[in-house]
Amino acid sequence: MAEKLVELFTSGCPICERTVKQVRDLTQYSAEHEVVVYDLNKKCDTNKCEDKAKEYGIQSVPAVAIDGKLADCCSNNGVNFDTLEAEILGK
């Protein structure tokens, strides 16, 4: 399995936290994935998280980007966890 950069965009809401947990569960046994969580409510020290959210076209959270692209699991206003699992694990 190839290394992937998985970026999560959240606002600290319960659905966001469920998504963070799901991603961490999917990646916990693989050192090949880097997981970065951006809580847009807390902001970043720089504008990095806001800039990335704009770059990826994120309109709602939670949202997941994999290797610099908004994941298909998040393209229809919400997270489809089956699609998310397939995208991270390559199923």
Rank of each mutant, 00 (worst) to 15 (best):
M1C: 07
A2P: 15
A2K: 13
E3V: 08
E3P: 13
K4P: 07
K4D: 04
L5Y: 04
L5A: 07
E7N: 05
E7D: 07
E7F: 10
F9W: 05
F9I: 00
F9N: 01
T10G: 07
S11K: 07
G12L: 10
P14Y: 09
P14D: 05
I15T: 03
I15Q: 06
I15L: 12
I15K: 07
C16W: 05
E17D: 14
R18A: 15
V20D: 12
K21C: 06
K21S: 14
Q22N: 12
Q22R: 12
Q22I: 14
V23N: 03
V23A: 08
R24K: 15
R24V: 15
R24F: 15
R24M: 15
R24A: 15
R24C: 14
L26H: 05
L26I: 07
T27I: 08
T27R: 05
Q28R: 13
Q28L: 13
Y29D: 14
Y29T: 06
S30R: 15
A31I: 10
A31H: 11
H33I: 09
H33L: 12
Y38T: 00
Y38R: 02
Y38C: 02
Y38D: 06
D39H: 05
D39Q: 04
L40R: 01
L40H: 09
L40M: 13
N41E: 14
K42P: 11
K43C: 11
C44D: 15
C44W: 09
D45S: 11
D45E: 15
T46G: 14
N47T: 00
N47R: 08
N47W: 02
K48R: 14
K48V: 01
C49F: 06
C49V: 00
E50Q: 12
E50I: 00
D51T: 00
K52V: 00
A53Q: 11
K54R: 14
K54I: 00
E55L: 04
G57S: 04
G57F: 02
G57V: 01
I58G: 10
I58C: 10
Q59L: 07
Q59Y: 04
Q59D: 02
Q59I: 03
S60C: 12
S60H: 12
V61Q: 10
P62Q: 03
P62F: 06
P62M: 04
A63G: 15
V64T: 03
V64F: 11
D67L: 03
G68A: 02
K69E: 14
L70W: 09
L70K: 07
L70E: 09
L70M: 10
L70V: 07
D72T: 01
D72S: 03
C74A: 14
C74F: 04
S75K: 11
N76Y: 09
N77E: 08
N77C: 07
N77G: 08
N77K: 07
G78T: 04
G78Q: 03
V79G: 01
V79S: 01
V79C: 05
V79E: 00
N80A: 09
N80T: 02
N80F: 06
F81H: 01
L84Q: 00
L84N: 00
E85K: 13
E85P: 03
E85S: 13
A86R: 09
A86P: 01
A86D: 06
E87D: 06
I88D: 03
I88Q: 05
I88R: 06
I88V: 11
I88S: 05
G90L: 05
G90H: 11
G90T: 11
K91R: 13
